[in-house]
Each structure stands twice: as structure tokens, then as C-alpha cells.
């Protein structure tokens, strides 16, 4: 008889394993941030360095860059586990798959989303974002990037078994990101006009709660399809 571990032990085991793996190959953490930084550098070069224009476009630039850089890590989310058979073991185990998936997505967010949130002040400086909008940017990223990880993981789960899954996954996932983009950028816009933006944050929070509850189920059924 194998000793049964509690659900919390399972969650933390999967979570810390993924973090450890990511920290061992630092590229996984550094690359999305570098990518984000480069995309943000490209915009002033493309549209001109005029401070007013940049400040006006900053919410859009930051969020589009955030969408793209979370896409980078998603491809890897289940791929390694799929190739070395870990995923099969996880599915076959007696533990609930949605919980394992939840741990993996949480680890993915800590690796790709959280650094973005922490680096926001730097990006805000580069884009000449007003200080009143800085807090809003941080808050929307804090609520929005986990949402991106959850929604994206559904696409990653569906395409993990495919040879050329990467581009297809972006095609599946990006349309689903649109509501997040709309509410997040509008929150930042509103805050730069010194108006209350709690409504948009509340909607983002509501979407995040729904995603935490529903997405792991969708992701695990997607993984089952991909593995079988």
C-alpha cells in the first residue's frame, strides 16, 4: 500500500519541482523578460520617441508585450513532461489531475508573470507612463497575468502532443485573451485620467476566480486527449 499524501503536499511538490527546474535553467526566467523589454524598446523606435504619444500608448504596448511574452513560456509548460512520460504518470496517478495542473500553472505564472509585475516600474519609466497609472499597471498585471497563464494553459494542453503546436496554440489562445486586454488597458487608461478604475479591476478579478475554478478542469481534459 502506497502512502497517500495530502492534496496540499501534492500541490507543493509539483509546484516546487517546476520552480526548481526553471531556476536551474535560468534562460526560462530571463528570456520572457528580455523579450518583453525588447518589444517595448521596438515601439518608440517604430512610432517615434515623443513622450506624450508614448504615454498615451503605454497601456496598450505593455499589455500586448505581456500577452506575447507569456505565450513564449506556454509552449514549454507541458512539453517536457509530455516527452519524458511524466504527464502520463500524472494522469494515471490516483491524485486529481486538475490539482496537479493548478500547481503547474501557478508555477508557470511565478516564472513568467510575476517577474513582469515586478519589473513594471522600469517599463513604465521607459514608456513615460504617468506615476498615477503605475499602480494601475501593476495591479492589472497582477490580476491579469495569472488569467493569461490559465487560459493559455488550455491551448498548451490541447496542442502538447502536436509537432508544430507552438503557432497553432497562439492562434487558439490569442482571441480568448481579448477581454483581459480590453479591461486591463482600460483600467490603466482610466487611472491616468485620475478616475476610479476599481470596476475594471473587479471584472478582472471575477474572471480570474472563474478561471481558477474552471480552467484546471478544461486543461486536464485537454491533456487527457493529448496523451491518449
Amino acid at each position: 500500500m502506497v502512502k497517500q499524501h495530502s492534496y496540499w503536499q501534492l500541490f507543493s511538490a509539483v509546484f516546487s519541482k517546476d520552480l526548481k527546474l526553471a531556476f536551474r535553467q535560468r534562460a526560462e526566467i530571463v528570456n520572457p523578460i528580455l523579450f518583453f523589454l525588447i518589444v517595448i524598446t521596438l515601439f518608440p523606435l517604430a512610432i517615434g520617441p515623443e513622450p506624450g504619444l508614448l504615454a498615451r500608448m503605454a497601456p496598450g504596448i505593455i499589455w500586448v508585450a505581456a500577452l506575447l511574452s507569456t505565450m513564449l513560456g506556454l509552449d514549454k509548460l507541458f512539453r517536457d513532461d509530455y516527452h519524458d512520460g511524466t504527464l502520463e504518470q500524472l494522469i494515471a496517478s490516483s491524485y486529481p489531475l486538475p490539482l496537479t495542473v493548478l500547481a503547474k500553472v501557478a508555477a508557470h505564472w511565478v516564472i513568467t508573470g510575476l517577474p513582469l509585475v515586478l519589473m513594471t516600474p522600469v517599463f513604465a519609466l521607459l514608456l513615460n507612463l504617468e506615476s498615477s497609472a503605475l499602480l494601475a499597471t501593476v495591479l492589472t498585471l497582477l490580476l491579469g497575468t495569472p488569467l493569461l497563464s490559465f487560459i493559455g494553459a488550455i491551448g498548451a494542453g490541447l496542442t502538447v502532443g502536436l509537432q508544430k503546436g507552438g503557432i497553432l496554440m497562439s492562434l487558439l489562445v490569442l482571441p480568448l485573451y481579448i477581454p483581459v486586454l480590453i479591461f486591463a488597458t482600460s483600467a490603466i487608461d482610466t487611472s491616468s485620467m485620475e478616475l476610479a478604475y476599481s470596476g475594471q479591476l473587479a471584472i478582472l478579478g471575477a474572471m480570474l476566480i472563474v478561471a481558477i475554478l474552471a480552467a484546471p478542469i478544461a486543461i486536464s481534459s485537454a491533456l487527457k486527449v493529448s496523451v491518449s
Binding site: I154, L158, P175, L176, I178, P179, A214, S221, A222, V225
Partner: peptide, 20 residues
């Protein structure tokens, strides 16, 4: 897989519609 994506899409569709 297509079925799962269709369901995910239909849950998102009203959210997308109203946000747009």
C-alpha cells in the same frame, strides 16, 4: 480536442462580446 476548444470558446464568447 475540437470539442473541448468549442466549449471553451462558447464560455468565452459572451465575455468577449460584452467586453468588445
Amino acid at each position: 480536442a475540437a470539442c473541448i476548444l468549442a466549449i471553451v470558446g462558447v464560455i468565452n464568447l459572451p465575455i468577449i462580446h460584452f467586453s468588445v
